[in-house]
């Protein structure tokens, strides 16, 4: 009987350790740290208690996958498969940065966004363009851009930036899967970002799926945009409206059930879930009439049947 209790105690403490590593609350087990008063005997500051834990995106399907919304602090990874799809992924990352910036602004401080880009990445997929970023909803007066020659320089700048609590978001744009950004480095950045309370968006341009410490990993694919709405409620035929992203959730706490299609409205600065019919249309119309060189099968595609469970430990892609 006593042995059983000891075993249970061990299991419980192990669970607690895992929960602490994964930074998530264990149900039915209040954290001892949170309740303790500070040494002076005062309750913790109100602003700390009332600070929102996550930034909801307003799209129920995505918020569910994200466990409520985007976290403040910590690392998220966004990747795209091919360089020519980089536009969509840039758009998604910039939209997230704009959301963080807007949230900061609403809470009363104008915070800059830092975009760290490997020089090679900027050369392949283009340089950020200030008028475009402005039209997209970012505050360009508070947009800092760093062009780092090597991945190592970029990592150094990112780490330095995460310890400064002024940025609304830090974007680290890396091309491919360099050996100098492996699991241990991503773990280090993740811990630093969580400690500093700064969201770090790792944007892996034309990269493979690779094990990392990020909370989430999305693959972003291009998707046809909607059409421009007219004042009478109809749409302007043949026009290109708000950008649409095709999101594949590759890593999250909850398994994503389906592909997610999002539309970014720069004017409202928020995402809208796209109608299901888009989804259906894309599923049936998968084969283009003039196929551009066929893509390699995406490993994390969630509507594909998995033969032997889910692949969790990826080999090094670099």
């Amino acid at each position: 009987m006593a042995g059983n209790a000891v075993q249970r105690q061990t299991v419980l403490s192990l669970r607690e350790t895992i929960a602490r590593i994964e930074d998530r609350g264990l149900q039915g087990c209040a954290r001892a740290v949170a309740k303790a008063a500070d040494p002076a005997g005062f309750r913790r500051g109100k602003e700390e208690a009332s600070r929102p834990e996550v930034l909801p995106l307003g799209v129920p399907k995505l918020d569910e996958v994200l466990n409520g919304g985007l976290p403040f602090g910590g690392m998220m990874e966004i990747r795209n498969a091919e360089t020519r799809d980089a536009g969509a992924a840039v758009g998604f990352v910039a939209a997230l940065a704009a959301l963080y910036q807007r949230q900061k602004k609403e809470s009363g401080c104008l915070a800059p966004v830092l975009w760290i880009s490997q020089t090679l990445a900027a050369r392949e997929a283009g340089q950020p363009y200030a008028p475009g970023l402005k039209a997209y909803g970012l505050d360009v007066q508070r947009f800092l851009f760093v062009s780092a020659r090597t991945v190592k320089d970029a990592l150094w700048i990112a780490e330095t930036a995460l310890s400064v609590p002024v940025f609304a978001a830090v974007v680290l744009e890396i091309r491919g899967n360099p050996a100098s950004l492996a699991l241990s480095e991503s773990r280090r950045l993740h811990v630093r970002a969580r400690a500093g309370g700064v969201p770090l968006l790792v944007f892996r341009q034309a990269g493979e799926e690779e094990a990392s410490s990020a909370f989430f990993r999305f693959q972003v694919k291009p998707a046809p945009a909607g059409e421009r709405p007219l004042p009478d409620g109809s749409v302007l035929c043949g026009s290109i409206g708000h950008p649409v992203f095709h999101l594949l959730v590759e890593k999250s706490r909850l398994q994503a059930s389906d592909d997610i299609f999002l539309e970014w409205n720069a004017h409202d600065r928020r995402f809208y879930a796209l109608d299901e019919r888009w989804n259906a249309a894309l599923q049936t119309n998968d084969e283009p009439t003039d196929p551009v060189d066929p893509l390699s099968a995406s490993a994390g595609r969630s509507h594909r049947a998995h033969s032997l469970g889910r692949l969790l430990a990826f080999p090094r892609a670099s």
Binding site: A86, G87, V90, G91, A94, C109, L110, A111, P112, R123, A125, G126, Q127, P128, Y129, P131, G132, L133, K134, A135, Y136, D139, V140, Q141, R142, L144, V166
Partner: peptide, 22 residues
């Protein structure tokens, strides 16, 4: 960077790309 007010909405043309090639 921290203090200046954000720019007005209509100062620049819409429909500009996020990235351009040098």
């Amino acid at each position: 960077i921290l203090g200046s007010p954000p720019l007005g909405e209509r100062a620049f043309p819409e429909n500009r790309p996020l990235r351009i090639f040098a």
